[in-house]
Nucleic acid binder design. Structure first.
Lengths: 204, 204
DNA sequence: TTATCTATCAAACGATTGATAGGTAGGTAG
DNA sequence: CTACCTACCTATCAATCGTTTGATAGATAA
């Protein structure tokens, strides 16, 4: 059902619109991206977009909502693979960073364009973001209760970790000096050494 | 000379415009903030703004340029107070976070509105951003050379640290559970324990 | 064949955008 | 008094905005 189009060899027009929207929102942001610009890049007229989406706001919400679903689903799946809190945290960090290196545009707009959502749409997306953050916070809490993590404030720590990794999407370059895996490893080390009670992560 | 207005009891009109611009850019961003909206909030007409600034782009650059100057100047001054690399890093983190909690709007737009600068203006601001980052990287490099920091990649580490703290401006609430100093202390601990060779930062 | 659905188009709507031109009240300087 | 400067104003410009309307060619279904 959901995402079934992703496996088809040819993306539907709706999906083409979503991809182009993500691309342009990443470049210029929601207010500076006109409906006409999205249409022009797909070689159709702006009025044709309204056959697929009700409004520009509707398009923004649709795109962000799907990104949040991908994020939540991926994170849940990654964390489920780990047994100990430490393993779960590493899996979570690894997923979070790889998403931000592999889907830079999606990751970027998933927080940069939040303020352009209508009040009601913002509420719905914010709720999903909270769900995403709570998965991280749950892992941290488990580690604290198990006595392996030294975290004075779970909420602040989760924000610090998330934002550190989220920021990767703003500077990471596909063709850059480092690959996504190396970047992920460096962040894992930094975070683990920062919160583990027994200092394990040496120089690898 | 510069910033002399800041000490006057009554801000000049130019400064009023800058402050209102920062406020509105923070709320809505550059493209969604009209010249008329800025003027209306100051009870003048939009055409009057053009007496003080040449263009909307000029206003954006002026605002961002001054923020970057404040950041660089403040960071240099803070770091100069420290003797050891560790002291310098703590001072840098403390300044960076306090700026992001005390001047949330300025800090936020100093990275969120970068993409709306013209090519030439972007070049100039990006250069100042680089100068700012290089101060952090220099401190880290000193710590590595002195053998007290364990940092596999100075550039990535500096980004991780900066972005973690920069992100504070996106969630920190003046009236929230934690004050700016507590937030700063938590981040200091996390970072120091993450990069120090001898694990000092215990639970304070 | 006839009817309906899909996906597009041209044309136009009022509203808003950044910016400019020209004018003017009030203060300052010679 | 005269000349100039400061800081605003009114009025207007072309361009662009999101959106709506009505029409249409082609595919699908009865």
């Amino acid at each position: 059902m959901a995402l079934s189009w992703a496996t088809e060899e040819q993306a539907s027009r709706s999906e083409q619109i979503r991809q182009m929207t993500i691309h342009l929102f990443h470049e210029k942001g929601y207010p500076a991206t006109s409906i006409r610009a999205i249409a022009k890049n797909l070689d159709i007229k702006s009025s044709s977009l309204y056959y697929h989406f009700q409004s520009k706001q509707d398009l923004l919400f649709d795109v962000l909502d799907r990104i949040m679903d991908e994020l939540i689903q991926g994170l849940q799946k990654s964390v489920a693979h780990g047994q100990t809190p430490e393993e779960k945290l590493v899996a979570a960090i690894r997923f979070h960073i790889s998403f931000h290196t592999d889907h830079q545009a999606e990751a970027f707009i998933s927080h940069s364009e939040l303020r352009f959502l209508s009040a009601e749409n913002f509420r719905r997306i914010a709720e999903k973001r909270k769900r995403y953050e709570e998965i991280f916070q749950q892992v941290l809490r488990e580690g604290v209760e198990a006595g392996v993590f030294n975290v004075p404030d779970v909420k602040v720590a989760s924000y610090a970790i998330l934002l550190m990794c989220t920021g990767v999407s703003s500077w990471f370059a596909e063709k850059g000096r480092l690959g996504g895996e190396e970047v992920a490893r460096i962040h894992e080390d930094l975070i683990l050494r920062g919160i583990l009670k027994t200092s394990k992560g040496g120089n690898r």
